[in-house]
């Protein structure tokens, strides 16, 4: 998460040029979705390049804080993916996650954050094709939405790092 300065909200139809810097973070569970992404890679399915993957032990580890921080500090999209319900490596982790993620999804727009920038999904290790579909669709959606305008500048007065040295 580097620059969080507010970017002007982009017009509806994004050209390739102004969505080039799009950054999406994916939180993938170690046992299923990370494997699914790997499978997609091994099978050489074409995938969008703007996803940065963070591997988590289980979606039960997903703290809503991770999503909130990503979106508030200017990531353009957040994708959470884990084992299908009833297939959790730890039996119940994704059941907890499901409630949390759903609550978060309903809560985001109340604070003025576009809930379409956040998606959670279930992809197993064998579902390379499914992964390709999920990530492609999400990436396309984020490109349609354009850069995340964020919630405002980091600080009114003093914090611009860019006008620093030299």
């Amino acid at each position: 998460m580097t620059d969080s300065s507010p970017r002007s909200s982009a017009p509806a139809d994004q050209t390739a040029a102004n969505t080039q810097g799009i950054k999406i973070v994916g939180f993938l569970c170690n046992w299923c979705s990370y494997g699914g992404a790997d499978t997609a890679g091994v099978c050489r399915f074409k995938q969008p390049t703007d996803l940065r993957i963070v591997r988590i032990p289980c979606t039960g580890r997903m703290d809503p804080l991770f999503v909130a921080k990503s979106l508030i500090y200017g990531m353009d999209g957040v994708l959470v993916s884990g084992c299908h319900p009833r297939d959790c490596h730890y039996a119940v982790g994704n059941f907890y996650a499901r409630r949390r993620m759903e609550a978060l999804k309903l809560f985001l727009p109340f604070m003025g954050i576009d809930t379409r920038r956040f998606r959670y999904t279930w992809v197993s290790a064998s579902e390379g094709q499914q992964w390709q579909k999920v990530v492609t669709e999400f990436s396309e959606e984020i490109h349609r939405l354009g850069p995340n305008p964020g919630v405002g500048p980091r600080s009114g007065e003093n914090s611009k790092i860019s006008n620093g040295l030299r």
Partner: peptide
């Protein structure tokens, strides 16, 4: 004494 201010910048 602003609530937050920059004392130094480093690189």
């Amino acid at each position: 004494l602003p609530q937050v201010e920059t004392l130094l910048r480093f690189e």
